[in-house]
Design a protein around this nucleic acid. Structure first.
Lengths: 157, 157
DNA sequence: CAACCTGAGTAAAGTTGCTTGACTCGTCTG
DNA sequence: CAGACGAGTCAAGCAACTTTACTCAGGTTG
């Protein structure tokens, strides 16, 4: 351990923050380069929630950890740009089911490939076992700090 | 690896995000419980920048990765609450040196103890070697994705 | 079966934490 | 001494939310 390396002495929380910020920023940069400059990370999370069968905007709100008004705004933004449609909901009432369009599914495919490529690149650097053990320890840390239910991933400060 | 565990199959970026959010949230919760509900994470980072000899607000801005106007607002907020003082700057000009008060140094001591306790608790869960290897891999990941200079830690989305 | 309650969705205004643009004021330089 | 430079400030704008206050569709109950 070199005394000059600030990373070795950094707080764990700081290391986690740096690692998350760098990977997410790199991911966003690559996805933007593919022509999706109109999507922010929260839209990717919304796509993950909606990808299998859709959801109402109130359900989306709960999963994203925001108010239903905020979710409504996100849906309106995505609808304007052709990423989602609002269709009738089998449950009736005022409910509307928000579903992904083909364009959103294309984005999911691109984002998936990008994420995969980034992870493979990190794997080359850490080695296969290094990456696997990193994933395992992160998972254990998350399990220890959260309850049985995973909390929604929110902006961090 | 259980097939039911969503964490084992999660993207690395997602794992990092969850781990960071959970540790930071827990840290903030504990520090707030010590009576520092008026401080956000960015103030802690500002304290780290200012802790040894202070800085001008323009220097602070560069270190936090925000505009000098934003840094000025942060300094004004901290000054109102008695965490920093603006003193004369040896360099002259319009420069003012922002320095921490005793109250801020007390907070740094509390935050340091809290951070240490949280890391020790995580260490119990992962084991000594687990924690050390997690730290090592995170440091390597950060080194790989950033240049020689570490970027400022910013809100993540 | 009418009155009520609930839950989804919307509308409007307020809040926060920044940014951009446009300055003022000391000092240094040619 | 004119002008440039850099620190700091003032004001307005903006994004992504929140809070408050509704409307509307449908089940529930006395």
């Amino acid at each position: 351990m070199s005394d000059e390396d600030p990373l070795e002495h950094a707080e764990l929380t700081f290391l986690l923050g740096m690692a998350f910020q760098l990977t997410l920023t790199e991911f966003v940069r690559r996805v933007e380069a593919e022509g999706y400059g109109d999507l922010r990370p929260v839209h990717g999370f919304a796509f993950q929630v909606l990808r299998h069968g859709g959801a109402t905007s109130t359900e989306l709100a709960a999963r994203l950890g925001v108010t239903k008004q905020a979710a409504g705004q996100i849906v309106a933004y995505l609808e304007e740009r052709g990423y989602v449609r609002r269709v009738e909901h089998a449950g009736g009432g005022r409910r509307r089911l928000v579903v992904l369009t083909d364009r959103a599914h294309e984005h999911l495919a691109v984002a998936g490939r990008t994420m995969h490529g980034l992870e493979r690149q990190i794997g080359e650097e850490l080695g296969e076992e290094g990456l696997a053990s990193l994933r395992g320890q992160l998972a254990e840390l998350v399990r220890g700090l959260s309850g049985p239910e995973l909390p929604p991933l929110r902006p961090v400060w």
